[in-house]
């Protein structure tokens, strides 16, 4: 989720300034922090899965009950073009970011920076389209089960993309500040500096999360526009 500091030593710095951690302890806490980043990154996906799972449940529940034949009268569909564009931007952004991450692992920092910022741009475009779509609907929110689910999807997807963008942007911003020191230490892929190690763990979590965003967008694109 976020890069959290390793607070153990932080308290030691204040309360017992002369109490130094052994190198073993530092390494141990370091691994714990990396592990927490790993766990946290996956947990965020779990949280998101149940969140969007609830929407999927609502979708299928209302679809199968079809009360008063008002699940989806006349097969109404939200603006297909905008929906496809949102989907395309999100998936393209995620793929691009994934590509950038592999480039970073290969040691190419510049590629990662460029793809990262382009991803941010793409994400914001998708976000803007998702919000704009609300003004282009051919149905009222309460006119059918489909319409209700679609409104909720718009709100939830906005929150999801916003979350992904925040994560990615903070990573990029932090990278700008760490850039020089980490590059001096062998680059982001190999540096043994604690910040660099945490950065790598964070980066991977963020990539997985973007994969999750793309997956969710794929599923609901199919649900709302294709079938």
């Amino acid at each position: 989720m976020t890069t959290e500091p390793v607070a153990g030593s932080e308290f030691i710095a204040h309360e017992a300034p002369t109490l130094r951690e052994t190198s073993e302890e530092i390494e141990y806490e370091m691994r714990s922090a990396e592990g927490a980043m790993w766990t946290g990154g996956r947990l965020v996906i779990g949280i998101g899965a149940f969140f969007f799972g609830s929407l999927a449940f609502a979708y299928f529940y209302l679809r199968s009950s079809n009360n008063e034949d008002l699940w989806r009268p006349n097969h109404i569909t939200a603006p297909t073009g905008i929906g496809a564009a949102v989907f395309a931007f999100v998936v393209a952004s995620a793929l691009l970011y994934g590509y950038g991450t592999t480039r970073l692992r290969a040691g190419n920092t510049l590629d990662w920076e460029v793809t990262g910022w382009v991803t941010v741009l793409g994400g914001f475009t998708a976000l803007g389209l998702q919000v704009w779509e609300f003004t282009q609907l051919s149905f009222f929110p309460g006119s059918s089960g489909y319409a209700s689910c679609f409104i909720a999807w718009g709100v939830m997807n906005t929150a999801l993309i916003l979350g992904g963008l925040y994560w990615l942007e903070t990573l990029l911003a932090r990278w700008l500040r760490l850039r020089r020191a980490v590059l001096d230490d062998g680059g982001p892929a190999r540096s043994t500096m604690p910040v660099a190690r945490l950065f790598r763990a964070n980066l991977e979590g963020c990539w997985y999360f973007w994969g999750f965003i793309a997956f969710v967008n794929l599923v609901f694109w199919v649900l709302f526009y294709v079938i």
Partner: peptide
């Protein structure tokens, strides 16, 4: 909240909700 503000119909049977 959406039912009560944006007037969606998730829980309103008469409008395709349940």
């Amino acid at each position: 909240v959406l039912d009560r503000t944006a007037q969606t119909a998730f829980f309103v049977n008469e409008h395709g909700g349940s």
